[in-house]
Design a protein around this nucleic acid. Structure first.
Length: 508
RNA sequence: GGUCCAUUCGUCUAUCGGUUAGGACACUAGAUUUUCAUUCUAGUAGGACGGGUUCGACUCCCGUAUGGACUACCA
């Protein structure tokens, strides 16, 4: 049987980076075995539904290059619909089946009654709606069949609850953690159908995974505690032989290790926690994502893949294809992994350095257009070659390399003051005139010629060279002086040098 | 409180009973360079604790501690 996995997020806002990793691991398992990767939208909570969230999920998967083979936004396959809100009647059917078999029941308790029950049980270990307390509540177990039917016909709101059997052991076999056991006396009577007619996660998830013939459920560790309920449902439905294999992924933790990474941590720690930007209704609810920050999707994927998984080798840089090839659920680490932004940056830097100058030039062309810069492909190719080892984010190219596109507006005054004096200052014009006589094609030849000229004229390399750099770039940082000069061309270089000479005199 | 999960350098991890416990990020130092970056070299740093099992334990078992998740008509 071929593998079928699903990524099943809830459209309650921007997709968290942890969700992206869950999607990635599902994708990797599917691709590795030539299986099917499904996107299912779990929109059963009408109160938390956020417009645009579904599209955000689709856009994210596309940007990351981990596209599902079927599901919302990716084609119908043969198991549509993939939106749970469109599958209500299916859940109703199965809930009824459970009720008819005595495995579920109607419950009419109001919020107040539920609170009173919890208050009453405060001093006991079982504070929940379970085998201990259900006989004290208002439900079809304590009411007669007639009374129950009457309440329903009168329009009394009700939920359907799972009737958890007493004192049985449920075994969950997790691919990452091994066997986990739950005693049903610790399990509560989970709500299966809500008063609004929508199923809860537990019912919808199990029903859909069964109906969609899911073979492997890869999801976050937060689902581990309710996995017992899920296995119970498979058993009660008689689906045990079709039950998927479970793999509960370790959580992605905050950098300080205190709890799982949450969306507010982005602002708190100063890095993105979302793949793409999100425009909420208020500025506080709007965030930049990895994409806006200047990350490459390949770097984000690589980084996320190694957060909780390792190939077992010492290789760190993996293409998606390599990840697919090497992936195995058994190699997933058990413990939670802290989010390490420094490492994420390192990955991005690696990807930028490994991207060809030609491709970078194409990407830069678009960025330049946005900023109103005009530059030839040839110029941008040269620029990319000079700058790519000096940037971490793609956005750094135009920020750190602004002087490749605009005139130098400010000079590094402290560093200039140290050198703009004596012979260096006096003979700077001579240096410019000499440079003007050179051929601007070979940076290394220029460098030798200028250095010879400098020493031959009794000047110091350590004084002249930095001033040339500041003249051309305004800053002490950046590519080789003559690499820049060649790229700028003679006219622009000489123009900048001459202008700088006047500016320097005014400044220092 | 209860249930469940976890625990190797600061961080991400390798190790599937016998290793000088390896790599990467970060950090420090040095080399290279006109600067920055890249690159290279070197260094600091680790098996939570206590019991077992075993000839031998980071590795298996138990306990403790610590951390985490869950404990909604949210997912």
């Amino acid at each position: 049987m071929s593998i079928r996995v699903r990524f099943a997020p809830s459209p309650t806002g921007a997709l968290h980076i942890g969700g992206v990793r869950t999607a990635l691991f599902n994708y990797l398992l599917a691709k590795k075995h030539g299986g099917t990767f499904i996107l299912r939208i779990e929109d059963t909570d009408q109160n938390r539904f956020v417009p645009g969230a579904e599209q955000y999920i689709i856009d994210t998967l596309k940007w990351c290059g981990i596209e599902p083979t079927e599901g919302v936004g990716f084609g119908d396959g043969s198991f549509a619909p993939y939106r749970q809100s469109e599958r209500k009647s299916i859940y109703k059917k199965y809930a009824d089946e459970l009720i008819n078999n005595g495995h579920a029941y109607y419950a009419f308790d109001t919020t107040d009654e539920l609170e009173a029950m919890r208050e009453r049980l405060k001093n006991e270990n079982h504070q929940s709606y379970d085998a201990h307390s259900r006989n004290t509540m208002r439900n079809s177990l304590t009411l007669t069949a007639d009374a129950t039917a009457k309440l329903i016909s009168e329009g009394m709101p009700y939920v359907v609850r799972l009737k958890v059997p007493t004192d049985e052991v449920i075994e969950v076999d997790d691919m990452i953690r091994g066997k986990i056991f739950f005693n049903t006396k610790e399990l509560d009577d989970k709500v299966l159908m809500k008063a609004d007619g929508m199923p809860t996660y537990h019912l919808a998830n199990v029903v859909d995974d069964y109906e969609m013939q899911i073979t492997h459920v890869i999801r976050g560790e937060e689902w581990l505690p309710s996995a017992g309920h899920h296995v119970l449902l498979y058993r009660l439905f008689g689906w045990l032989n079709a039950m998927p294999q479970f793999a509960h992924l370790p959580l992605i933790l905050k950098p300080d290790g205190k709890g799982k990474l949450s969306k507010r941590d982005g602002a708190k720690f100063g890095f993105p926690v979302f793949p793409l930007g999100w425009h909420g209704d208020t500025p506080e609810n709007s965030f930049d994502g990895f994409r806006e920050k200047g990350f490459y999707p390949e770097a984000v994927i690589n980084f996320l893949a190694l957060l909780g998984w390792s190939s077992g080798t010492e290789q760190e840089i993996f293409s998606l294809e390599e990840l697919v090839d090497l992936f195995s659920v058994e190699k997933i680490h058990k413990a939670g992994a802290r989010f390490d932004y420094d490492k994420a940056k390192w990955f991005n830097q690696q990807y930028i350095m490994r991207t060809s100058n030609g491709i970078l030039a194409e990407q830069l062309q678009a960025a330049c257009t946005e900023k109103g810069y005009t530059a030839t492909k040839e110029y941008l190719t040269g620029f990319a070659g000079l700058m790519k080892e000096r940037v971490v984010f793609f956005n750094d190219f135009l920020e750190k390399g602004i002087y490749f596109f605009e005139d130098v507006k400010t000079y590094d005054k402290p560093n200039l003051e140290k050198r703009w004096k004596g012979d260096n200052r006096v003979k700077f014009g001579d240096v410019i005139r000499f440079i003007d006589t050179l051929d601007f094609h070979d940076a290394s030849a220029m460098e030798h010629a200028v250095k010879d000229f400098i020493t031959a004229n009794g000047l110091k390399l350590g004084e002249v060279l930095p001033t040339l750099r500041i003249a051309l770039a305004g800053t002490m940082q950046g590519p080789g002086i003559f690499d820049m000069a060649v790229l700028f061309g003679k006219a622009k270089t000489i123009e900048r040098l001459k202008k700088a000479q006047t500016d320097f005199d005014a400044l220092v």
